[in-house]
Amino acid sequence: MKLKYIISFILIILLTETALAQKKQKKDEMDPQALAKAELKEELSGYKKLCRAALNPYRYDGVKTTQFNYKPYEYIKEVEIATIQNAEYRLSYNTNGIHHDKIQIKIYDRPDTDKRRVLLYEQAEVGGDEFSFETTEMIEKLKQVKLNKGIDSAIVDQMRLKKIFIDYIIPAVDRKTEVNEFGEDVMVKLKGAIILCVGYYNL
C-alpha cells in the first residue's frame, strides 16, 4: 500500500518536472528571429492604432508599414499613393518604430527615376514621433512650380495630383559589431519601421 503512494508521489513529481522542462525547452527552441518578429509585430500593431486614430475626421483609405534596414550607405525606399478626384488627403505618420538614426521624408509628383520631378514636401529628423499633414499645400506648390515654368495658367488651374511618391531616405550608419554567446564578433543589424495611414476628406 505504502509503495503505491510512493510511486504516485514520484510520478507526480516526474510529470510536473517534465512539463516544466518541456515548456522551457519550447521557449529555448523558439527561433530568436521569430521571437523578435512577434515582438515587432505587437509593437507596430499598437502604433498603427494610434496612427489611424490621428486620421480623424478624415476617412480611412489605407495603411503602409515600411520596414527598413540601416546600411553603411544612404538609400531610398519609395511608396506610391494614388490620389483620386481632387480629394484632400491626410497623411498620418507614426514613426515610433524608428529607434536608431532619424530618417528624412521627401514627397514628389513623380518617381525617383524621373528627373523632372517636383519636390512637394520634405521633413528631416523623422523618428520617435507622431505627426500628420494634408495634401492641399502640395497641390499649391506643384501649381506654382508649373506657373514658374511658363505653363499656361488655364492648364495649371485644372491641375491636381493624381499620384504622389513618398521617399524615405535612410541614412548611412557605421557598421557595429557585438560579441555573441559563443564569443564571436557578429554584425549588429539595425532596423526601423515607419507607419503611414492615409485618409480622405469625405464631404
Binding site: Y60, F68, N69, K71, Y75, I81, A82, I84, K189
Partner: peptide
C-alpha cells in the same frame, strides 16, 4: 546575409491604392 536582405528590401514595390469604398462613393 546583408546582400540577401538588401535585395529583398530594394525589390519591394510599395503602394497604397484608394479603398473600394472611396471609389464607389466617387
Amino acid at each position: 546575409i546583408e546582400e540577401a536582405i538588401y535585395n529583398e528590401v530594394s525589390a519591394d514595390y510599395e503602394f497604397i491604392p484608394p479603398s473600394t469604398l472611396q471609389v464607389a462613393s466617387i
